[in-house]
Design a protein around this nucleic acid. Structure first.
Lengths: 152, 152
DNA sequence: AGAATTTATGAAACTAACTTTCAATCATGG
DNA sequence: CCATGATTGAAAGTTAGTTTCATAAATTCT
């Protein structure tokens, strides 16, 4: 499974930063690498606790930072005031559409957009590390339910 | 000036919502419509207070919400945990590159990206209301200063 | 005009999402 | 088995934003 590769990368990241491989850190990393969708730090903590792990909020945040810098998770700003995390390993880069009604998240990918984005950055002498591209609107389902007929 | 047109739109928005045109609301709207760059709600409040206006935080937030729904300002999620606002009137839509070192904000515009984005949304039956496209990285200046030579 | 009713305002209290602090715990080497 | 240093997490602090509610201002009624 991909998780194993991720855990190795995580170990290496800890090593590079002279941090010990502890059971808490490994548990958090494993939970993150196995996550199937977006999650908040607090949701992650809750899940770990529900699974009987003895970890604190602080350690979760600290470990997420390491995972982030190792490129194993990415941060998203879907809702204001809170950060959503998303596993980055084993998934191609993608962007998001958020339904403002039902909060559903639809992923999309466009090589054309990525290419044009790279061109734009290059023109400004800007080196892109990460990016976020999010569309907010109404998903098909919510449009069907109402507000669809007249205004498009 | 564009500000006048914005104030008219704001008045109309207040009217539509059966809200009175008060001096506080007008002062806030004027400050927003005259803002040249991105600002946070608290920074706006501080500026108004510095200018001698007697307004409270609550009224600022409430008024920003009206301005937002009237399309006169847009929200941005540049830094996590805080919302930046940006005047929307009299400016064409644009996206941003944020230098993670110096926090400089560079604006860019790409019809090609907008078009492709619309295509992607359409393919999913998604109706786009707003979007945000932000690149995080190193600006030309910060690249020149260091970390440029070897790694690209 | 003055009373009654409605609406707006903002200080203070609250909340949510983190972050910082620090005493206790744990691991490792000697 | 003790000393040293890293790790942990509870509790306190911080920040951005929201809710509550008493007061103030405006509007309507008579």
């Amino acid at each position: 499974m991909e998780t194993q590769k991720g855990l190795e990368t995580f170990r290496a990241a800890l090593c590079r930063r002279h941090l010990a491989v502890t059971s808490q850190r490994m548990k958090i990393a494993r939970a993150v690498l196995e996550a199937q969708d977006h999650f908040t730090a607090d949701a992650l903590l809750a899940r770990l606790k529900a699974d009987g792990a003895r970890v604190g909020r602080v350690t979760v945040y600290r470990t997420l930072k390491v995972l982030l810098e190792a490129g194993l998770v990415e941060e998203r700003a879907f809702d204001k005031g809170r950060v959503a995390y998303e596993r980055a390993l084993g998934r191609s880069h993608h962007d998001h559409m958020i339904c403002v009604t039902c909060r559903r998240v639809i992923e999309f990918e466009s090589a054309r957009i990525e290419r044009e984005q790279r061109r734009q950055a290059q023109a400004c002498g800007f080196e892109v590390l990460t990016h976020q591209h999010t569309l907010f609107g109404h998903c098909r389902g919510c449009r069907a339910k109402r507000g669809n007929g007249s205004k498009a």
